[in-house]
Design a protein around this nucleic acid. Sequence first.
DNA 1: GATGAATGAGCCTTCATTCAT
DNA 2: TATGAATGAAGGCTCATTCAT
Lengths: 225, 225, 225, 225
Amino acid sequence: MKRPTSSRKASASPPRGRPKRSAELIEARRSQICAAAIERFSRDGYHTTTMQSIADDAGMSVGLIYSYFRDKEDLLIYAMNDVLDAYVREVPIAIASKTNPLDQFIAAVHGFGRVVDERRPAWLIGYRESHMLSPEARREILQKDVATTKLIEDRIRACIKAELFHPIDTQMLTYQSLLLVHGWALAAWRLPRMTCRRYIDRGLSILLKPVLVDGNYPQIDWNEQ
Amino acid sequence: MKRPTSSRKASASPPRGRPKRSAELIEARRSQICAAAIERFSRDGYHTTTMQSIADDAGMSVGLIYSYFRDKEDLLIYAMNDVLDAYVREVPIAIASKTNPLDQFIAAVHGFGRVVDERRPAWLIGYRESHMLSPEARREILQKDVATTKLIEDRIRACIKAELFHPIDTQMLTYQSLLLVHGWALAAWRLPRMTCRRYIDRGLSILLKPVLVDGNYPQIDWNEQ
Amino acid sequence: MKRPTSSRKASASPPRGRPKRSAELIEARRSQICAAAIERFSRDGYHTTTMQSIADDAGMSVGLIYSYFRDKEDLLIYAMNDVLDAYVREVPIAIASKTNPLDQFIAAVHGFGRVVDERRPAWLIGYRESHMLSPEARREILQKDVATTKLIEDRIRACIKAELFHPIDTQMLTYQSLLLVHGWALAAWRLPRMTCRRYIDRGLSILLKPVLVDGNYPQIDWNEQ
Amino acid sequence: MKRPTSSRKASASPPRGRPKRSAELIEARRSQICAAAIERFSRDGYHTTTMQSIADDAGMSVGLIYSYFRDKEDLLIYAMNDVLDAYVREVPIAIASKTNPLDQFIAAVHGFGRVVDERRPAWLIGYRESHMLSPEARREILQKDVATTKLIEDRIRACIKAELFHPIDTQMLTYQSLLLVHGWALAAWRLPRMTCRRYIDRGLSILLKPVLVDGNYPQIDWNEQ
DNA sequence: GATGAATGAGCCTTCATTCAT
DNA sequence: TATGAATGAAGGCTCATTCAT
């Protein structure tokens, strides 16, 4: 029944203007923790990362993490959803900015690329650690992934219907497009002096050459955005 | 009472014409262990796998593993090299079976594909767990990887020099070719009714269309092997 | 997100004719908390019960509990005293309602029984968790227990002095009487269709048969109370 | 991936003549651990006891305990069964040593008493901690307890059938007999200069007086055993 | 060589307690 | 006075690794 006087690294406490309350504070904490988790998970791997290290990075005590996340796996799931949710949020916007099916397809792939590029750490986590999720969590993640894939697939079908594409193997082209994006996250470091935009544009132009009915990959106006 | 004394141990004792000596026996043991490790690591992940489970699968005691491998990480390195070494062994053979640079390039990619296809488990380990390695080990692995990449790159340069390819971005084509192969291992399950051969052939024909000087992807003689 | 901000707090605010002051309010709070603690401790056990759960049940914040009790152990002591104090309060009253030593003895045992019956939860806590107390606290509790026992013992001596009882082993009879009462609290569930009154009456009539000088256990007037 | 050099209290290693093997060793270890657990659980309570303290007492490392018991609760169950199993083992023997139903009943109660007396610590654990067992474990324990109770109940019925007892409330007498025994373990310290034998003998003679047909509690020959 | 019992550091998680508001 | 977010010590359990036989 004792409670010895404590001691531990007095991690520079974050400036506390005045603790924001409830919803606001909660969301702030959650992202604070999630960011630290993503950083660690992607750098050191899920298993190697300790809750303590995440807490340290997030500038709080271990205990507090558990008021915001059920357990370590919950944190992993959240980290993974970070990317998946971004897909769902941003790709449709990218698509909506165009009217022509082909432009939409291209915009969609670029949208994916941008999301992956901006969240490479989180994306890598999903790639490497998804196999160790509990079955339910895995299923949930997978579902989002499939829904995401559909965004691309639908654009391709639209292109075929509009006779902009030859009636090719939709699945294969979908897959290769996604692979192109993944490739950026996975080993972009092998390609010095390359931006995500250019990488994907080049990749797409190669992929689409034999697919396009009129044979011309549209000249993207890079200033547009 | 968790660990009942096991029994798998009845694995047919090796023929004893002459007690397999040193190098021979050692190598036998090592692959025996390594096979078990690869199986486990790829199925359950590196961290989730216990040395005990590997020992069980390999039909020996935990202790013995430590006579053949320094520690668990050593086992991981070994497992990863399994693929890398296969590259180094088999790709050159595939290349040597052709004389024309274009055929050599194509054979090289197929060679990679075959290695990956036949060792998907080990390949996935490298993919997922390499970040876990100690810096030195990581560097060593990386080196082999780069050397391997060079095999492809050199063929592409040869094609360009022989004016079979337009003078395109060598790096990018190399990367896309490798990505094609990786794609097979990573998510082949998304493509039902697809073989590695066909997958890569299709992929290459798409990739090469805009690159080939005469525009024709050679008709592969599938009987050749 | 484990602990959603609770809501039980809507407990009818106390009438405010005059803001319940100090002693009054304090005592109200204390019993409010203590009741919740007893409920929890007896249902889930001392260690399994969290301060949070007590606070929830009492309709207040954790912090506030610490304004009324030093710590968790203090709460336990308080809970245990709930029964002991009831003994001290109610048994003498029961005794005082009789004049004859024998009737007093019987009334005393019934008094104990009633207290135990009405506070079985608190009684069980004392039974199960007293070994958990710090030495000082334990001593204090023990003292009350002994004082309590004396109430019974003294009646027995009085009966002997009045030659209503044979000069038997006072200690043993005291003990067996208390054991009878404890037995009710401990395992009354084993005896279907039994009330505390009847249980103790029967028990006493058995216990007293060989002790009574005139051999007759008095016919209790059940209407008396 | 580090493994720092260790350090910890070099608890005097137990003399190791030559480690006994398998079944023998296993049983030795189990009782070694179980004894330590009983000691600790009964002294400090289940929750307060740490696995480390048990390991220390048993003269081994924490880890080893887990090769012999699933978890802490498993250890608790085992500790509890220590008494229950002794009942099942020893009471029938005590009964079998007599032929007359009345003597059998008395022998049975004394048998219980002896078991409880010899294993008071373990018995107390069962009394105090059973409520915190998982439902299944609790059910299993309860079952043994009921079976045990039946041993007494059956003797009483036999006495009634043999017209040695008046046709009294079997349940109540059973319960009171058990309570007598429990009383010994629970608060024997209140009765100075008392042995278990005498305590139970006296208690039984009181309990049986109004029950016996011929009114005489048999004079036990205490030398017999 | 081969075994597997034994070790113990370290990690996830809980929860009593504090304290700024 | 009241709140509940924040803290961090401590405990259960796992598993890589060693070493006596």
